[in-house]
Design a protein around this nucleic acid. Structure first.
Lengths: 191, 191
DNA sequence: GTCTATAGCTCGATAGAC
DNA sequence: GTCTATCGAGCTATAGAC
């Protein structure tokens, strides 16, 4: 692995585990094994390094979402279920959502990967719900927009509650709750 | 207002607006107008200052929750509705939940106020749901534990999504979604 | 109890040899 | 392209006058 990639890998780990503010260039360089100047040879600074990492992370998470929601092997109802039933460790957190509260993410350049990912996921879920209604799997009165938001929020909020309670399972209870509630919007066509 | 209170007030503002890491003692002192030594006369350091502020914030938020869930004037269904319909500005964030992802909050001493508040709220919501079932307002098959988690997560996750999208209303869509889904668990006794 | 001065450290970033 | 050395600024905390 070349120096640039080693730096990116170290930055990715630190962004996930400690966040942006705590990811100091010196920590990145120490973890990557690279020398001091290398970071500023490959990147204009800490911000650009983080942005490069986060564009990559957003792409990864988007591929996970695609593997569920753009997969023709599943029914709309199954897609929603698969997304909500993913096993998540609440004490780790979402690689993007965990950063949303940091001061630096009020600026467009750092927030952009978060906006891109959440927009995409919300769109995919909304479309899936609409398809479910069209296929008579969900009841027609389903408010797709607000329910798409709720589904995403149940994951992100689950992480927050898990971390606050130091309970890795709180997030799974939240997504389980969303799943239970959604059942009521299924038609009799369902098992 | 005495110096200690001025310092607490400034720290409270900065914790809410910028978080713990970004709340430097120098900023606190500048905002409060107090001199350098005062902070360390009244508090052992930055951590104890934050803990004092957060115990206070947890108490405030708990009083809000009590005003809804421990109020005999409302039906259980109305209590849940009031909680979910509170107008929230998604770009501000929860004074406690916004801190959950910071590194310093992995230690017990800083996390304690967050755990206390979320435990209390979850307990109150769960109890309210159980009362609702007992009064035949909610259907008996309602899974109260996971739904209580979902309700809290819809708020906390709503803030995360709002900040990520820079959309102050995303949180209201998420809580609205929770409300819509809950409707299906209401009995015919409801209007 | 409040102030000014300053310690020791780490931050993000730069200079310049090789 | 990678390294070592170092900058100025801001960090958390302490010393000591009043």
């Amino acid at each position: 692995m070349n120096t640039r990639d080693k730096i990116l890998k170290a930055a990715k780990t630190l962004l996930y585990e400690e966040g942006f503010e705590a990811m100091s260039p010196s920590k990145v360089l120490k973890l990557s094994g690279a020398g001091q100047g290398s970071l500023y040879h490959h990147f204009s600074g800490k911000k650009e390094l983080a942005r490069t990492v986060l564009d990559d992370v957003a792409e990864e998470l988007n591929e996970v979402a695609e593997s569920i929601f753009d997969n023709e092997n599943y029914l709309p109802t199954e897609k929603i279920e698969l997304f909500l039933k993913r096993k998540r460790n609440g004490l780790l957190g979402c690689k993007l959502g965990r950063l949303a509260n940091e001061k630096a993410f009020r600026s467009e350049d750092l927030r952009a990967p978060l906006e891109k990912y959440f927009s995409l996921v919300l769109t995919k879920i909304k479309r899936t719900l609409i398809e479910g209604v069209a296929q008579n799997l969900f009841k027609p009165e389903m408010p797709v927009d607000s329910i798409a938001h709720l589904i995403v929020a149940s994951v992100q909020g689950g992480y927050v509650v898990s971390k606050s309670l130091n309970d890795d399972n709180a997030i799974n209870q939240a997504t389980q709750g969303a799943l239970e509630l959604l059942r009521a919007y299924k038609t009799e066509k369902q098992t």
